[in-house]
Amino acid sequence: MVAAIARRLAGMLAVMFIVATMVFFLTRLAPGDPASLMLGDQATAADIAELRKTYGLDRPVAVQYVLWLKEIASGNLGQSIFLQRPVLQAIGERAEPTFFLALFSILIASLIGIPCGIASAVWRGRVADQTVSGSAMLAASIPSFWLGLLFIQFFAVRLGWFPVAGYGDPGADLAQRLRHLVLPAMVLGIVNSALITRFTRASMLDVLSEDFVRTARAKGLPESRIVLRHALGNALVPIITVVGLTAALLVGGAIVTETVFGLPGIGNLVVSAVLRRDYPVIQGALIVIAGIYVLINFTIDVIYTLVDPRVET
């Protein structure tokens, strides 16, 4: 058990190391000198040299790389050029809307996807299955920003049920702020439900053909109990995985939706950073988001051991 967790932790660190390395060297690919990019067109040669020195850009790339790894390992993601504050702080300030958006979106996606996937598997090949499978494919074909624009037009502009954009006043109470998340969460919930539906269907179909489901039928249990307790209980592990990983990907993957709805979240921060070439922010955000994904992945593995008694190693 401990050895298995240690092994997973080592794998986690390896992935993070590769992400950090990738981010570092890819950033060096960017055309132009970072210092002159940071300072803009009006900078003098002296200014640029000064900045190169403060950011260590005058040292060899290998040295920069080692220094950068050290900084990350100590939890320092650097300083935002444009925002004039530590990257981690900038990300922290933007975390709330992104966190709640990811949470609500995955809830909606699961509430749609899991029941639809179950129904689709139970009535495999019937009209219900065809409808669900077709709808899932349709949902996976919708660009989230487009659906967002349509929702804004209809529910916010036309009907006036929800705010058009933004996240409200920072001083307003939480409920007031969360109202701004209803429409974006619906958009992301619908779009991401497709994957959860397909996964639920596939894993339920796998389990429903197992011998122990036949045993449960032989016991004379009602079909609902067979499906929900015996089959779903065994399909839960892959379903938890896909729900968890989708949630993790939503933290950084809601960029487009955050932009459409003008939500000041992490995705929005990344887009602004890209447009302003604020590389420390982009790099920092990538590290944080990959870290969240890896951490959730790790948590899921731990949950496995709780849900599935067979996993003991």
């Binding site: 197992e210 011998d211 122990f212 045993t215 015996h230 209980g233 065994n234 849900v307 599935d308 067979r310």
Partner: peptide
């Protein structure tokens, strides 16, 4: 049934 290895629910 014939298959005792797979005829019981593994998670109960």
């Amino acid at each position: 049934f014939q298959e005792p290895m797979t005829s019981l629910n593994p998670v109960l």
